[in-house]
Design a protein around this nucleic acid. Structure first.
Length: 303
DNA sequence: TAAGATAAGAGGGACAT
DNA sequence: ATGTCAGTCTTATCTTA
């Protein structure tokens, strides 16, 4: 329902408004009505294929990325004992090159580390699709994962567990609203493991994580259910008041956002059930009710 | 069928031992 | 390091309108 096929002319089906892309969240949304079209961002980097008028083909080589095990910069020392001019090498030179070759091989393989990265980044590209993550988040995830490997934090833990944690951390850092449950479902690792690894990463790598803002959560939920702009705005007002009264601390931001939206729906007589909001937000109905009660009592709302 | 109530259980932070 | 405690959230079940 909320997902629509993207029009060829890049305009919103509902109101013909211009479609914009939010680089940080990877969401494509309508400029005028806020309707989220599809939560996926295509890789907009240059393509690497040869053209008829450029038979040599590669202009720049493959793009370098942290999310490739060797960053796309692999270099191998060949196995032929010839120099650049094709002449055979001297005996002493052959020896030196042999030594080089050994070390080159070792650095290529990086023993376990390189294997680990290969596997991790293959998982990461699957995650990118499942969670509709932007390139920014992917690079950030790869960066965090590399740091974790470098500190030997992956040893004794599952690759997927740590990668999931790195992904979650990258999302938090980029302000892309993905919950532990989102990541957990996508990578098929128990939520508690991701969360445990996430805290470990934050600790050991001294990551500075911004607190999840319930305001970001509102638009995520609202677009999933397809609520209009007016309802959304009122929910944001409720959130602002709630924050001023300091009744949001220690609560799940997603839960607060869900409750604020629910209240907003009641006010404008929008026919949305707690269940619908619960599914869209990933928090249970009970939690929504609790937050709803809390907000209603503290803010003197009479509906 | 949606909303409200209640209880049991899990996980994590704060704090003391 | 380990244990306890208060507070939060989830799951499950029952009642109410």
């Amino acid at each position: 329902m909320i997902m629509q096929i993207l029009n060829i002319d890049n305009s919103c089906r509902r109101c013909k408004g211009l479609i914009l892309t939010d680089e940080s969240t990877g969401e494509r949304y309508c400029q005028s009505c806020g309707n989220v079209i599809v939560e996926r961002i295509e890789d907009s980097r240059s393509e690497h294929r040869s053209f008829a008028d450029n038979p040599a083909g590669s202009r720049t080589g493959s793009p370098t990325s942290l999310a490739i095990h060797d960053r796309g910069l692999a270099t191998i020392i060949g196995n032929v004992n010839k120099d650049a001019a094709g002449k055979s090498l001297s005996t002493s030179m052959k020896y030196d090159i042999k030594r080089l070759r050994v070390w080159d091989g070792r650095s290529q393989a990086h023993e376990q580390v390189d294997k680990n990265l290969r596997q991790a980044f293959s998982e990461l590209s699957k995650l990118k699709d499942k969670l509709a993550l932007s390139d920014t988040v992917i690079e950030k995830t790869a960066y965090i994962y590399r740091k974790a490997i470098g500190k030997g934090l992956v040893r004794g833990r599952s690759i997927q567990g740590v990668l999931g944690a790195a992904t979650y951390a990258a999302c938090r850092d980029a302000g892309t609203p993905r919950t532990l449950n989102d990541v957990s479902d996508a990578i098929n690792v128990q939520r508690k493991d991701i969360s445990k690894n996430y805290r470990m990463l934050v600790n050991k790598l001294d990551l500075k994580m911004p607190v999840v803002d319930s305001i970001n959560c509102v638009s995520k939920i609202a677009s999933k259910i397809g609520l209009d702009e007016k309802t959304k705005r009122h929910a944001l007002e409720i959130l602002r008041d709630a924050k001023n009264m300091e009744i949001t601390a220690g609560k799940d931001p997603m839960g607060i956002a869900a409750a604020a939206l629910y209240i907003s729906c009641l006010k404008y007589n929008v026919d949305v059930t707690q269940r619908a909001i619960s599914i869209a937000s990933g928090v249970t109905e009970v939690t929504i009710r609790n937050r709803y009660k809390g907000l209603r009592d503290k803010l003197d709302l009479n509906y």
